[in-house]
Amino acid sequence: MTMDRRTVLGLGGVATAGVVLAPGMTLIAAPPPDKTEASSDQRWAMLIDVNKCDSNCTACTKACRQENNVPLFGDPNRDIHWIRKLEIRDKEHRRPSVSLPVMCNHCENPPCAHVCPTQATFIRKDGIVLVDKHRCIGCRYCMLACPYKARSLVYHETSRNEDSNPEVPIRAKGVVEKCNFCVHLVDDGKQPACVQACRNEGKHAMIFGDLNDPQSEISVKIRTVKTQTIRADLGLKPHVHYEGL
């Protein structure tokens, strides 16, 4: 028996209808495919609800330090912070003070990448701004260029200990580093460590997702809720958005 074109198409339609589920539902958590690559189909971004963020909570900063082996040297001038908790006060006490985490804003027009003399800092196709530490010469021009104070230089040698995350390298002395949206987790289809920690231990104030997907939680929220970015006047188009600032 031979099937004509119409029958084959009809069978295909039935097969497709069979695997479609309600939106937001997946059958099983599939492992990532063998080969993945950053693509401009995605545009990763973060949304932080300042109203939910508690000034005493440091779940995100702790998780970041643990996940990315961010060293602490014990010298406040030289310690490395990928994510910092800031307290913003109104000088005239008209509004209550707010606490918010600040990190690399993964700008669409990153001044750090523009000034980098070796192209060590670059913007990946999916919008994550990264430092290629193999190329960084430690000139610190990017640290001057960044308006968010998101970057730190590794001033001292670091070493691995039993608590270190083996998936992530430790640091070479004399390179600049910053938040990378936990790129190794994002490439595996997971959420950054701070977002996971905020959901599990904190107040669920952080959302991470794809702005190019109109159905994603973050896209819906940015469309429907009033959000802001820090220093939007600079025209850098940051991709860390804040709600209730």
């Binding site: 990532p32 063998d34 990946r124 193999h134």
Partner: peptide, 14 residues
């Protein structure tokens, strides 16, 4: 591969 992974996000797990 190192350069491709860092700069283009290419990860071939096998």
């Amino acid at each position: 591969r190192r350069a491709q992974t860092v700069r283009e996000g290419l990860r071939i797990r096998s």
